[in-house]
Design a binder for these strands. Structure first.
Length: 669
RNA sequence: GCUGCUGUAGCUCAGAGGUAGAGCACUCCCUUGGUAAGGGAGAGGUCGAGAGUUCAAUUCUCUCCAGCAGCACCA
């Protein structure tokens, strides 16, 4: 019989008959290893213990202690076990797919009745029964036709469709968990008993479209988490609870930053505290943009459909626009006003406008005023542009995904050969802002040409190369999103992560070959002829709303001092201290510190608790001693220790702390 | 937009076919207290909106609105 040579991680090698399985290899080493083994790595491929090895290879056997393969297999086997449990409880439920995801897995089912939270409990219980049966996991290779016939016979249309979508004619792998059968490429554990029965939890049910296509059936997806042991599961659940405490919607309420209400879904009512963050941030960006060579502009909110038709938004973006009909025959006569509904049906007098969903067309209008020379390029135009988009109701999320928002928008009009340099300048600009705001880690995604696009391949080649080379020059290797670029040009996206790990696109930098041409932008080149500029759409924060949401979650509400809406509370311990409290507040305010007095008839314990919960970074407590010595007792948020300082000292310190990062830097110079 | 769930006092939540309750917050009184909730009293709700069933609906049914989770979307 032919022999093959297998090399172990320690470098030793042994000969085995060709077609030996990792299980047999494990058994040749020791009985206990054969029992503990869960899978192998054969030449770095994750290998089922039952799969034969046909050629010389490196081999490493995995046990439950090997985290990466263990988690992969535990979660994957649990997905099968869950599907089996569901079909045992409710025969006739159709199975689809159930991949492993971060922290666990999900499985999509087709069932008429919705799964209830009680159902999840029943499924979990059944899963534990299955695990405790310790039934073997077995596998076989089937011919395609046999597999299709099997799933037709068992009325599993989704499986049939899956098989039909698998390219080629190669045979397919089947797995059995006990008697329960599923199509699966593997690998799997030896038996169901290798799954820790107390380290998983079914989390929730949600709808999900079959194959991610909103035109197809809506299935029921059960999400679950699983780990190597109970402690890790507990730790994960605890982390989720902690993350929920950072939720910007909850903190926004607790810190009295903003609210939203039914009458204006997806739009923010900023309260004084929240607006303080907003304006502080806006002032900061405004200073940065001025320093970065941008000219700030402002453009109209309500714009005639003619412009949107010209820009292409009317055709491509209409269903996301708020459209406003204005009856121009209206007079100021009160009686007429009551007939608005009737008269607005009269097309003769109705003019159709849209709230701007983007600022770019308006910026081109400004560019188009007066003749532009190549000497004017690159021309960097910025606007804190308030936009309205009719986002699908299901997409709304706190202040992170809204229908009314303000972008720190900017458009750079330049020549094609300036794209790379402008991109480099932008990345540098954005990095400096993110670092000032405490975000040192962010993902960068690069989206290249989509199938349907404007512009020549040559132009795309140049633009893509320019974006990539500028990004790499900044030491960033972007993630590639193939084919995800806009039809008008490639783009870079800068992504930040919220408290529970959801990604949010904030910064963006997009090349646009189309819009300047559509809207008739041009400049006179060195050659004396007219040329169309390239337009770069860019934002750093993205929208103030989303960015502030991220900022709140990132800091769990404990914003950096310069951004904190209430920076200092000066709290009296005895009412005799009230005059000194007012004096301190006045001294701080004179230095630009946001300070407030708290001279309520409450104990200091009460005040400390309340302002700690309210995330005020500094509390100055004033009692009899402080009044006599003209000192303050300083308590910083999160610190138990207090410190006594003189009034002059603390005012000087806090006045410095209150400087935004850019001004602090220039003050140091 | 789709699937499921939810909507009761400012907030967090309980409740039942006969028009409602707790804790915190709020107001007033007592308390002048030294670093995460001192004590007492009081006020506060068209039970998301509309329609239907019923002698009677906040409770049951339907429609709509909004929110939550996920999917789709994010030009």
């Amino acid at each position: 019989m032919a022999q093959i040579s297998l090399t172990f991680p320690d470098g030793a090698s042994r000969d085995y008959p060709k077609g030996v399985t990792p299980m047999e290899v494990a058994a040749s080493i020791s009985n206990s290893l054969a029992k503990k083994a869960i899978s192998a790595h054969v030449d770095d491929a994750h290998w089922d213990l039952q799969w034969p090895i046909e050629v010389d290879a490196k081999i490493a056997l995995n046990t439950l202690k090997d985290e990466v393969p263990a988690l992969e297999l535990i979660r994957h086997d649990l997905a099968h076990i869950m599907a089996r449990a569901v079909q045992e409880i409710w025969p006739g439920v159709k199975v689809t797919i159930g991949p492993v995801i971060a922290n666990g897995w999900y499985y999509d089912f087709d069932r008429t009745e919705p799964f209830t939270p009680e159902d999840l409990g029943a499924i979990e219980k059944k899963m534990k029964e299955i695990i405790n049966k310790r039934e073997p996991v077995t596998t076989e290779i089937w011919e395609r036709d046999r597999a299709i016939a099997h799933y037709q016979a068992t009325n599993e249309p989704y499986k049939v469709e899956l098989i039909e979508a698998i390219p080629g004619d190669e045979p397919l792998r089947m797995y059995w968990h006990g008697h329960w059968q599923d199509l699966c490429r593997g690998p799997h554990l030896q038996n169901t008993g290798q799954v820790p029965a107390d380290a998983f939890k079914l989390m929730n049910v949600a709808g999900a479209y079959w194959r991610g296509d909103s035109n197809r059936a809506m299935l029921q997806r059960i999400y679950a988490v699983a780990f190597q042991n109970k402690e890790q599961l507990k730790k994960h659940l605890f982390m989720l609870e902690e993350a929920a405490k950072r939720d910007h919607r909850k903190l926004g309420r607790e810190m009295n930053l903003f609210h939203m209400q039914e009458e204006a879904p997806g739009q923010v009512f900023w309260h004084p505290n929240g607006w303080s963050i907003y304006t502080e941030l806006q002032d900061y960006i405004r200073r940065k943009q001025r320093a970065g060579g941008y000219q700030e502009v402002n453009t109209p909110q309500v714009v005639d459909r003619k412009l949107w038709e010209q820009s292409g938004h009317w055709e491509k973006f209409q269903e996301s626009m708020f459209i406003v009909e204005v009856d121009e025959s209206r007079t100021e006569d009160g009686d007429n006003a009551q007939n608005f509904d009737e008269r607005s049906n009269d097309p003769k007098h109705t003019r159709i406008n849209a709230l701007k969903p983007m600022n770019c067309p308006c910026h081109v209008q400004i560019f188009n005023q007066g003749l532009k020379s190549y000497r004017d390029l690159p021309l960097r135009m910025a606007e804190f542009g308030s936009c309205a988009r009719y986002e699908p109701s299901g997409a709304l999320h706190g202040i992170m995904r809204v229908r009314g928002f303000t972008q720190d928008d900017g458009h750079i009009f330049c020549r094609e050969d300036q794209i790379e340099e402008e991109t480099a300048i932008y990345i540098d600009f954005l990095s400096s802002i993110y670092s000032d705001l405490g975000f040192h880690e962010f993902k960068v995604k690069f989206s290249d040409r989509p199938e349907k696009r404007a512009g020549t391949d040559e132009t795309w080649d140049k633009a893509e190369a320019a974006l990539l080379s500028a990004t790499r020059a900044a030491g960033i290797e972007p993630e590639l999103n193939p084919g995800e670029g806009a039809f008008y040009g490639p783009k870079l996206e800068f992504v930040l992560t919220d408290a529970i790990g959801r990604d949010w696109q904030c910064g963006t930098h997009q090349v646009d070959f189309v819009l300047p041409d559509r809207l008739g932008a041009d400049y006179i080149g060195e050659d004396g002829n007219k040329h169309t500029p390239v337009m770069l759409h860019r934002a750093c924060l993205g929208s103030f709303e989303r960015f502030i949401g991220i900022l709140i979650e990132e800091h769990a509400g404990k914003l950096p001092f310069w951004l904190a809406p209430r920076q200092v509370i000066v709290a009296s311990i005895v009412s005799d201290a009230d005059p000194f409290v007012h004096e301190i507040v006045a001294a701080l305010k004179a230095k630009g510190v946001r300070a407030e007095a708290d001279i309520r008839n409450e104990k200091i314990n009460y005040k400390v608790r309340e302002h700690s919960v309210g995330k005020v970074p500094v509390l100055l407590a004033i009692g009899q001693r402080e009044v006599e010595d003209r000192t303050v007792s300083v308590r910083r948020l999160g610190e138990k220790q207090t410190k006594t300082e003189t009034l002059d000292q603390i005012v000087a310190t806090l006045a410095t702390d209150a400087h935004p990062p850019d001004l602090r830097r220039s003050a140091d110079l």
